Measured scan of single mutants.
Amino acid sequence: HNLTITQGKLFFHYNPKLCLSEIHKMEEVSGTKGRQERNDIALKTNGDQASCENELLKFSYIRTSFDKILLRWEPYWPPDFRDLLGFMLFYKEAPYQNVTEFDGQDACGSNSWTVVDIDPPLRSNDPKSQNHPGWLMRGLKPWTQYAIFVKTLVTFSDERRTYGAKSDIIYVQTDATNPSVPLDPISVSNSSSQIILKWKPPSDPNGNITHYLVFWERQAEDSELFELDYCLKGLKLPSRTWSPPFESEDSQKHNQSEYEDSAGECCSCPKTDSQILKELEESSFRKTFEDYLHNVVFVPRKTSSGTGAEDPRPSRKRRSLGDVGNVTVAVPTVAAFPNTSSTSVPTSPEEHRPFEKVVNKESLVISGLRHFTGYRIELQACNQDTPEERCSVAAYVSARTMPEAKADDIVGPVTHEIFENNVVHLMWQEPKEPNGLIVLYEVSYRRYGDEELHLCVSRKHFALERGCRLRGLSPGNYSVRIRATSLAGNGSWTEPTYFYVTDYLDVPSNIA
């Protein structure tokens, strides 16, 4: 807008934040220059609390790290170098490059900038070799853009010569660093050979998330399962459950009422301010606690030095998902009996873990797994792929695949051998790939016309006998059925096997 004052003059007093240069501009645009008398524009009460600059400061050096910015700028000295009290560095987070010096300023003089007072450097006698002032900004957020400017702080001049310097606002972004852990990993099994893994992005990506790394490792069953005799009275049979499938998407929606109208769909109840505040506090606490764990609990591995020492970490090797089922080394339970199943799973520490690289999504279907087997899954978020990966501390989750139908069934015939004193040795093959492992066998036998009897055969007993022995049988026709019990439950009964026990007292003698 054009402003013209045809008559009258300007009068400025007691404006401590208004620089004289701005008042002189007002004289020019209003056409009143030359009308004012000496005392109409006070030299001592206008701009006496402001830094009124008329020179431009330029930054000469900028260096960044993930949490620091090192700045240096060209030296500046007023005509009387004693008038320079120091520099004021202003900075704040700036997602967009549209910041002005006066953003967030209120009537009390406060604003949204963080201000650092910096002492002037030592003055050199040689004007050509003056030290460049600077400042190291610490405690910054990774991968965050900051708006920065600097200006001088000078003393009051009796001659009211307006001098000083100020830089333009520059924008500097800190470097990326390792992201925080992925949030809320959930693993479920939808079949006997697959596990579905879902997660949420890290709360602090500290860069642009480029991919996720998912490692999985087959877990050995508890050692007590191999040692305890679950045929003993009072000892509860062990059981394991597989990871249940995901709930429906509708039930997972946030901010939804727990109660549904019987007449149909209901609208979600909005969260109160107290609920939102509580969630923010919980989120802040979780982030602080995660940072504490990362800094205190997890110790970084030592990389190899120039002395030739090897990095103890196993090298990563990509495998196809079809090879995942046989990740671990199978060892027989008892070496003397080769027909026992290889369900003991000690994992070799030198073995390469299978892994998958996930790009542009937060889910993965891990296939080719062994049925009813526990897996430990390790999830890392990465925001750099080359020249070397920059990934987060791992988040861990466990899951067990679903049982395989008929995996616990005894394959092959049940054979028998009759000894003296009416002892019958029953023999059968253990299931080759049971659900988890076989903890015991149930032997059901009966003599024709009598009630059915049951015998429990422990895992250890089966390994020693290759089956079991029935003792003290009365003469007669017998039928026997056997079924295995694994961590997933009972298998199917075998087809009945028949044998006849004679009275050993009636056996004919070869003595003449």
Rank of each mutant, 00 (worst) to 15 (best):
V359L: 10
T373I: 11
R240K: 15
E247R: 08
Y504D: 10
R459G: 12
N339L: 11
P475I: 09
L235R: 06
R481N: 05
V334K: 13
K287T: 04
R313I: 10
P434H: 05
Y498E: 05
S363Y: 12
V327S: 12
M427S: 13
L505I: 09
V501M: 07
V397T: 03
E351Q: 12
N421K: 13
I366Y: 04
A395N: 06
A381G: 03
S305V: 09
P205S: 08
R459V: 13
Y212F: 14
G207I: 01
E452C: 08
P270S: 06
T347C: 07
H254P: 10
E465I: 11
E451Q: 14
R481D: 01
A336N: 12
V299Y: 03
S274T: 09
L379C: 08
K287N: 01
N206F: 04
S284L: 09
E281N: 00
I418T: 12
G322C: 10
K287G: 02
S344M: 12
F289V: 04
T272F: 05
G476T: 01
S342W: 13
E281H: 14
W216C: 12
E217P: 14
T307P: 12
Y375G: 08
V214P: 01
S284Y: 00
E389G: 07
E224A: 13
V324Y: 00
V358M: 15
N421W: 11
H211G: 12
T303C: 15
S251Y: 06
E404G: 12
C468S: 04
S392G: 01
K236N: 11
Q256E: 10
D222R: 14
E217S: 06
Y478M: 01
R483D: 00
K287L: 02
P508V: 12
I482S: 01
K302Q: 11
R469L: 08
S257N: 07
L426F: 04
E495N: 12
L379A: 05
N477S: 11
L321C: 15
L237R: 13
S257Q: 08
E388A: 07
K287E: 01
Y504C: 10
S392A: 03
L277Y: 01
S392E: 15
P413M: 15
S458K: 04
S458M: 07
D385P: 12
G368H: 09
D291N: 15
G476C: 00
G207W: 00
G322R: 04
P245D: 09
S257M: 04
C267Q: 04
L379E: 00
G322L: 12
N510W: 13
P205R: 13
L369D: 03
A405F: 14
Q429Y: 13
R319W: 09
L235M: 11
Y498T: 11
N339S: 13
D291L: 03
W493S: 10
V359E: 13
A407V: 11
F499V: 14
Q380C: 11
S363D: 12
R286E: 06
L235E: 03
P475V: 08
T288G: 06
F298A: 09
K432A: 11
P496M: 03
Y441M: 02
Y448F: 11
V297A: 04
V457R: 06
E247W: 13
N206G: 05
S248Q: 15
L369P: 02
K236Y: 07
E290S: 03
E389D: 07
S344C: 11
A399S: 12
R286C: 05
M427C: 09
W242A: 14
R240A: 03
G234P: 09
H425A: 10
A394L: 05
L237I: 14
R240G: 14
Y259P: 09
L232P: 05
K278V: 07
S367V: 09
I366M: 12
E389C: 13
V297K: 05
I377T: 02
Y375A: 08
E249M: 03
L487R: 15
